[in-house]
Design a protein around this nucleic acid. Structure first.
Lengths: 150, 150
DNA sequence: GCGTCACCTTACGCGCACGTCAAGGTGAGA
DNA sequence: TCTCACCTTGACGTGCGCGTAAGGTGACGC
């Protein structure tokens, strides 16, 4: 039976939910894409829902953007930073530090945004190109239907 | 000195123009992504402008969509089919065959379109997500600027 | 106690997409 | 004819992203 200690998941469940293998989860951890999860006494990994979302994000970045894990690592490290900021947001040190951290976060997010925006634009370009081709082909087809002579 | 026999290019020039290595060009040929180019007497490969465009398309599909060369091969084979259709368009057999080929081409193009459309949509989703985050962060920053007390 | 099951680490293996020599042939000018 | 840049075909090497045992641990059920 699974453990369901509140919101913690074992590696098998995380694998099932995210569609990756356990090996992949350990691999991501090894490569620094996932922070080392907490453990049970026996050494079993205990993942949070946040970890699950991280995995899903990694997969999206892999499949949508074709990014390498090294590149993705940079991005998720940035995400980590954001989480840290939110965590210590209210109770922490001076507002100067908050401000500088926040600006860093914004800079990182803007970078991510720029990357995605560019790809999205290129994809839309390809999309429109294909739509044009399709119209052409359909035009030809219509001509054929209209003039059945060889 | 390069040869410039009309529109034919040696592998080195193609490499330079497309930004891939000569090895990569031979590799693509080996894998069936590029049709075997014509050759000089001595065996040197002679590429056409069309080949150059094919290479550029392959690279786009790789980088934008993160597709494997095997997947790309399917797509460019479809492109090849289209080219064949256009080549033998007027002088070839019955209009029935034309029609069926054309419909096949349309089906292939629609598939490509569907793939790209989906990716483009997902990317736009991510893009909007990031834009939302950015607004949030900028709001926080504004709050900080307004209330300088720790 | 014993089996089963889900997990653990360690470590070698694999497919992909090329990189990188090595050894030699080709083409055109001095 | 010589030279030299450019090309040829192997064939082995490399980095990435995992796959796949092999051997062991801890908790549960009988």
């Amino acid at each position: 039976m699974a453990i369901r200690d509140g919101a913690f998941l074992q590696i098998g469940e995380v694998a099932e939910r995210t569609g990756v293998t356990q090996r992949t989860l350990r691999f991501y951890e090894e490569k620094g894409l996932l922070k080392p999860p907490s453990r049970m006494d026996g050494g079993f990994r205990l993942y949070s829902e946040e970890d699950v979302q991280r995995v899903e994000q990694i997969r999206r970045l892999q499949k949508l953007l074709g990014m390498s894990l090294a590149e993705i690592k940079d991005l998720v490290e940035a995400e980590e930073l954001k989480t840290q900021i939110r965590a210590g947001w209210s109770r922490e040190a001076g507002s100067d530090e908050k401000r500088s951290r926040l600006m860093e976060t914004i800079a990182i997010t803007e970078k991510q945004h720029a990357i995605i925006r560019e790809k999205a634009e290129q994809l839309q370009h390809m999309q429109h190109e294909l739509e044009g081709k399709l119209e052409t082909y359909r035009g030809w087809l219509a001509q054929l239907e209209a003039a059945p002579a060889g």
